[in-house]
């Protein structure tokens, strides 16, 4: 399964895509009659990192595994927070400065659950899903990085420390 059907609409979202992310289109498709809160998180490419000017990023994924994991993460969150809408999409390939590399949209009756679930979903995508970024700097150097370093603390590549509460 590589796409998710929005609950009430026939729109299908590819979890992993090499096309630019259509933020406004996805948002427009994410309104729900029972939802009073819609939260959209867009993870954008910054023009700097490690005190160096970034030209662009290039993302790589194990696409089959990544799509399956994103689907599972969304489904778990949908059940836990009773989400009306749960959408996520991550881009692969070259992504320019100010462009969205990843988007997460959650919609619920009230804002608290939409925020919580959204943060949970992006945390898990960043830590667990097999997607990697390579930074290309203006000075011509490149760096595979921004890696999840949780294993240094937890001792296991399968145990992570999340910004958001996971209980």
């Amino acid at each position: 399964m590589t796409t998710s059907a929005l609950c009430h609409q026939a729109v299908e979202v590819k979890f992993i895509t090499s096309e630019p992310i259509d933020l406004s289109g996805l948002l427009a498709s994410s309104h729900h009659p029972e939802a009073g809160a819609v939260v959209l998180f867009s993870g954008d490419v910054r023009d700097n990192n490690l005190s160096k000017r970034v030209s662009y990023l290039e993302y790589e994924a194990n696409e089959a595994m990544a799509a399956k994991m994103v689907a599972e993460i969304l489904e778990e969150a949908r059940l836990k927070w009773k989400l009306n809408i749960a959408v996520a999409q991550h881009r692969i390939g070259k992504v320019g400065v100010s462009e969205a590399a990843v988007v997460v949209i959650t919609a619920t009756p009230h804002r608290r659950e939409a925020y919580e679930a959204n943060r949970h979903i992006i945390d898990r995508i960043k830590h667990e899903v097999p997607i990697w970024k390579c930074e290309y700097f203006e000075d011509g150097s490149k760096l595979w990085g921004g890696n999840c370093n949780c294993h240094e603390i937890t001792g296991s590549p399968d145990k992570h420390i999340y910004e958001s509460p996971q209980s």
């Binding site: 993302y59 960043k126 990697w132 890696n147 370093n149």
Partner: peptide, 10 residues
């Protein structure tokens, strides 16, 4: 077999 370094998506 797939061998995958720690994730760095997002």
């Amino acid at each position: 077999i797939s061998i995958m370094p720690p994730s760095s998506g997002g």
